[in-house]
């Protein structure tokens, strides 16, 4: 029961954040994207984090929702 409560809370939180953020969206022209296109602003994982994500998925019970691999391979020693 508690897990569903937590899941509901997380879903509600994320949905509310999404609504709040998307309602304040503005159209950004290509020439205004110099900050958004900065290498440090990337939303996905960076190449250098590859091994970190691997070891975290082996050493922790949770994995996924990080735009990466969702299974396969082992290296679980």
């Amino acid at each position: 029961m508690k897990k569903f409560h937590n899941l509901k809370l997380s879903l509600c939180g994320i949905s509310l954040s999404a609504l709040a953020l998307c309602s304040s969206c503005t159209t950004v022209k290509e020439y205004q994207k110099n900050r958004l296109n900065d290498a440090e602003m990337v939303l996905g994982n960076r190449k250098i984090e590859k091994t970190e994500l691997n070891f975290q998925s082996y050493r922790e019970g949770a994995s996924g929702a990080n735009a990466g691999k969702s299974g396969g391979g082992c290296g679980c020693n």
Partner: peptide, 21 residues
């Protein structure tokens, strides 16, 4: 596995992404 994401540019300085697997 099914992986779904939605990314959104909010303004010139902020962008966000929602992810679910």
């Amino acid at each position: 596995a099914g992986s779904f994401s939605y990314s959104q540019i909010i303004n010139e300085r902020l962008q966000v992404m929602f992810l679910a697997d």
